[in-house]
Write a protein that binds this DNA or RNA. Structure first.
Length: 270
DNA sequence: CTCAGTGTTCAGTG
DNA sequence: TCACTGAACACTGA
């Protein structure tokens, strides 16, 4: 379930577990797809014995600063995850990588679907794919009028534009639906058609949804009961929100979209 | 057996 | 080059 809040949560986990310590050992699974542009063997050699200086994130990408380059760059894809492993416990199912710190702390990367990626980069933020990312909402979004100018040039549906990582880095399918629901905007609306007030609503909700999800460590059980999130899964007929509003499922931009027609506000102008 | 799926990339098109 | 669309990727689980 990795979108920005989930990735930020695992970033903090890795930080607590590894920052300031040396990596005593690196265990890699022989997976030529998840390890991209480097072999598991070369990857392990680059990390073994290095000290972890910092753990960084932008959008859905995570990387570690080490005391020597290159640095590891991780992406969780659809089903990837990073988890702590107890001393003596077996590696979790679908593991691709395990890092063991000098103090015995263990962190494992798992990914059943293998759409995640483990890479090496000399300078992660300066190279693809991180260099192509847009604004990370946790770092802040451009002023409303600047954002409106950017959206003005996009004719695609709002839902698809929200998912564009070169604009909103870290926004994924559930965040996009949640933001549009709370901003009371139709996901099919062309981004270019939003007026200033609508862009302001959208911007505010992106910030509040992301901050709130991060504040509860992306634990969805602690998301507010009023959020669409709790009711959007499984294209169930007769799905309803906590307020009793009917939820409609459709495909926009190739992705399942849940929205609530009765919440949509008419455009204020345009 | 079939199909959906919380992500990204690439080919084809305009 | 930009923007958009749809398919492909790979695998689990309902």
């Amino acid at each position: 379930m990795p979108e920005l809040p989930e990735v930020e949560t695992v970033r903090r986990l890795v930080e607590r577990r590894l920052r300031g310590r040396r990596i005593a050992s690196v265990i890699t699974a022989p997976d030529p797809i998840v390890f991209e542009g480097t072999s598991p063997r070369r990857f392990a050699a680059a990390l073994t014995g290095r000290r972890v200086v910092a753990v960084r994130r932008r959008g859905k990408h995570l990387w570690m600063e080490l005391d020597r380059r290159p640095w590891p760059l991780l992406h969780l894809g659809m089903s990837g995850w990073l988890e702590a492993v107890r001393r003596g416990a077996p590696r979790p199912r679908f593991w691709k990588l395990e890092l063991v710190a000098e103090d015995g702390g263990r962190v494992a990367f798992t990914d059943p679907r293998r759409l995640g990626r483990i890479r090496l980069r000399q300078d992660p933020p300066g190279e693809r794919p991180v260099s192509r990312l847009g604004f990370d909402p946790l770092e802040g979004l451009p002023a409303p009028r600047v954002l409106r100018a950017l959206l003005r040039r996009r004719s695609g549906p709002m839902k698809a534009v929200l998912l564009d990582q070169s604009l909103f880095a870290g926004v994924g399918n559930w965040i996009a639906d949640e933001v549009l629901y709370q901003a009371r905007l139709d996901p099919r609306r062309a981004a270019s058609s939003l007026d200033a007030e609508e862009v302001a609503r959208l911007r505010g909700r992106i910030l509040s949804v992301v901050r709130r999800a991060v504040a509860v460590s992306a634990d969805s059980d602690r998301f507010p009961r009023t959020w669409l999130f709790h009711h959007r899964w499984g294209r169930r007929k007769n799905a309803r929100t906590a307020r009793g509003e009917k939820i409609v499922h459709l495909t926009i931009g190739g992705r399942t979209t849940a929205f609530v027609p009765s919440r949509i506000l008419p455009p204020t102008s345009d």
